[in-house]
Computed example of a mutant assay.
Amino acid sequence: MSEMVDEAHGELAKLEQEREDELPKTDAKFAGNLVQIRVSEGHNSVGLIIDDRNAERALSQVVSETEYEQFFRILRGPEVLEEIQ
C-alpha cells in the first residue's frame, strides 16, 4: 500500500512538473485509502471522485498497474456531473 502512495506521488510530481519533496502527498494518499477501505470494510469495489485532473491521471495509472485495478474506479468530479446531467 505504501508503495502505491509513493508511486502515485512520483507520477503526480511528473505531471505537475514539481519536485517530489516540494509536492504535498495529499492526493497521492488516496491510493492507500482506496486499498484500506476495500480491505477493512469488505467492499467489492470502491470509487473515488476527485477534482484534480493530474491527480486522477496519476492515481489511475498507479492503480492500473496493480491487482486492485478491477476493484477501483477513479473519476473526475466535473465528468461525473456531466454524466448525471
Rank of each mutant, 00 (worst) to 15 (best):
D6V: 12
E16I: 07
N54A: 14
G47R: 09
R76Y: 04
H9Y: 05
S2C: 01
N44F: 05
G10M: 12
L48F: 07
D27M: 02
F72Y: 09
I84G: 05
T66L: 01
E11D: 09
R53E: 13
L12V: 05
R53C: 04
L75M: 08
D27K: 04
H43K: 05
G10Y: 10
R73V: 12
R73G: 06
L75R: 11
V39W: 04
A55R: 08
N44E: 15
P24H: 09
E69H: 08
P78S: 14
I49H: 00
S2T: 01
A13S: 02
E79N: 13
E67A: 15
G32R: 08
E7Y: 03
S40H: 12
L12F: 04
E69P: 02
E69K: 10
D51A: 15
R53I: 10
Q85I: 10
E20M: 14
I84T: 11
Q70C: 03
R57Y: 07
N54E: 13
E7T: 07
F72V: 00
R19T: 08
E20Q: 13
E56I: 02
P78D: 14
E22S: 06
I37V: 13
I37R: 02
S45C: 09
G32C: 07
Q61G: 02
I84S: 11
A31D: 01
S60D: 15
Q36P: 01
E41S: 10
V80T: 13
Q70W: 01
E83V: 11
A13H: 00
E20G: 06
M1L: 04
E11Y: 02
H43L: 07
L81E: 14
S64W: 00
R76S: 10
L15W: 00
V80R: 13
R38E: 05
N44I: 03
L34I: 01
K25W: 06
F72H: 05
V62T: 11
I49C: 10
K14T: 08
V62F: 11
L23Y: 00
F72I: 01
A13N: 00
T66W: 01
E65Y: 01
L15K: 06
E69R: 12
D6A: 15
V35E: 07
V63R: 01
E82W: 15
E67N: 15
D52G: 08
I49V: 14
S2L: 09
Q17Y: 06
I84W: 04
K29Y: 06
A8Q: 04
F72P: 03
N33L: 15
N33G: 13
E67F: 03
H43E: 03
L59P: 02
E79L: 11
V5W: 03
V39P: 01
E16D: 12
H43R: 07
D52S: 12
S40Y: 11
V39E: 14
L34N: 00
E65Q: 06
G10A: 10
L15N: 03
I84F: 05
T26A: 07
S45Q: 12
S60T: 15
H9A: 11
S64P: 04
N54V: 10
I49K: 00
F72D: 02
Q17N: 14
E20C: 07
D52C: 10
D21T: 12
D21W: 03
E67K: 14
V63T: 01
L48D: 10
L81A: 15
F30I: 04
E22Y: 03
V80I: 14
L81M: 14
G32T: 05
L81Q: 14
V46I: 15
G42R: 09
E67L: 15
E56R: 11
G10T: 14
Q61L: 09
